[in-house]
Structure formats: structure tokens, C-alpha cells
Design a protein around this nucleic acid. Sequence first.
DNA 1: TATTTGTTATATAACCAACATAACAAATTA
DNA 2: TAATTTGTTATGTTGGTTATATAACAAATA
Lengths: 131, 131
Amino acid sequence: MFIKIEPQSDVPIYEQVTRQIIEGIARGDMQSGDTLPSVRNLAADLGVNMHTVNKSYHELEEKGIITIRAKSGAIIRSTEERILTPEQLQQIEKNLKPVVAEGMVLGATVEQIERMMKQVCADLQIPVEGV
Amino acid sequence: MFIKIEPQSDVPIYEQVTRQIIEGIARGDMQSGDTLPSVRNLAADLGVNMHTVNKSYHELEEKGIITIRAKSGAIIRSTEERILTPEQLQQIEKNLKPVVAEGMVLGATVEQIERMMKQVCADLQIPVEGV
DNA sequence: TATTTGTTATATAACCAACATAACAAATTA
DNA sequence: TAATTTGTTATGTTGGTTATATAACAAATA
């Protein structure tokens, strides 16, 4: 798989797994309907504990990104199933706020931050008009 | 002061303090050259421990936002002193990435996320062209 | 001089991250 | 059907972080 763990990061391992799976889906490495590797397989692959991966999968389920079928496997939900709720939109905005605020206080302009956002989108290979 | 602590948030108290001070500066509630309250005063004000606020101040210093003068006080650095280093820009982009990626996977469009970013800027009362 | 300041030190309690091991029961596969 | 694989649950341990409390120090300030 495409996941790389940085053991001495301040980001917890289970969070690293969660983020990189999300980025993998955004990038198109994985599609709706695809099955994630079993928690044991991925854990062995990454050299981490089974429960660490399991925690990540449940975080993904809580975010509404995958469906875990007990004793069967984890499946990436289709985009149709993933309807953006107002709560999710609010959550994204809540996550965005401290990042933007810090950037501004450090002296970044709105234009710079917008440029960075487009750069991130480009990294995720998401088509943006004008990129 | 303008800081409100949510004790049962999953965000640590010292992190809440850090973020709200950053937002306060971005919003213009505090300006460059202003002195932050002493760690003891702010701690008493918020009903938290001295060391919790102290940790927050040192986080702000590490981010390059304030200067702590030993046995004197903490001062908000001027925008001129705060020159955006490439490392800082990269850090902002690194912080931005998981938020944007999650939004996209949940079904948000680039336009929606850009709109949210402008909303955040508006909350921070930062003038953006066309707002 | 007395007060206020950040600093440093020590100690404690609670919680979280991560690991290890084991067993269970349902789903899948051979 | 039998063996394997699956997520689930349980228990325990280790290490680190968060947050508190208390105390003392030395420099800056009033």
C-alpha cells in the first residue's frame, strides 16, 4: 500500500493512517466500493499493531467515509452515500479556522493561502479550473 | 480577556489558549507591541493552572508570534519581524492538506471550500476583496 | 523595598497512544 | 464441511502527554 508511517511525528500513528487513506481516496488511488486491506494485513504491512489500524478504520467510519461490515471487511462508501451534512460542513470550517488564522498572523495574505489551497488540490490531483 | 475554554473539548486547554490568542491577533483585538497578560493573571482569569498558560505562550513563541522576555512579560511581535519563512509556508500547507482532503472526500467542491475559507476570513474580520 | 515576572523543580492524577496476547463468532474460502 | 480469515472484545502493560498543585528562585518593575 501507499501509506508511510513517520514514527516520531507528533501526529499519532492511527491519525497518520486515517489521513493517508483519505488522501489516497481523494487522489483516486482507491475508489468507492473498493475494499480496504484487513486490519491485520495492513498492520503487518506497516509494522504496527492491529488495534492501531482498527482505530483508524473506526475513525474513518465515524467520518462517514467507509463502512465496516463486521467479520467481513471495510468498504469505501460511494460518493452518493456521502452527502455533505451541514454538521460536516461546519466541522470542515472549524478545522480550517485555526490554520487560516495562524497563516494570517504569520503574515500570509489571503491570496497566498488560496494559492496554497490550490496547490494542495493539485497534489491531490483534483481538477481545478485554471490549474 | 476574550478567551473561552471548553473543558471537555478534545482540543487540549493550552492549545485552545494558543488558537484563541492567534485568532484575537488576526481579528485585531490585539496588536503588535501589545503585552499579553501575565501567565498567572490569565490562568486565574480562565480558572486553569499557571503552567497550562505558560505552555501556550511558549508554543506561540515557537511559532514566532510573540517574544517572551524572561521575568518581564510576553509581547506580540510586529508584522515586520514576522517574515514568512519557506518552512512556515510549508507548514501551513501541511496543515491545510488533511482538512482539504477530508472535505473533498466527503463530497465538498473546491468552490465550497474556497467559500468556507472566505467565511473564515470574514469571521476574522480580515478584508478580502469582494466580501 | 515590596511586588510582579517568567523560570525551574518536584510530585501527582488522569488520560491517551501503542503494543501484546488471547479468545470469540461470523463470514469467507478451499 | 473444514480451515482460514474477518472484525470484535477483553485484559494488561508501557510510555508519554495533559493538567494540576506547590514551592522556591532571581530578575524586572513599581
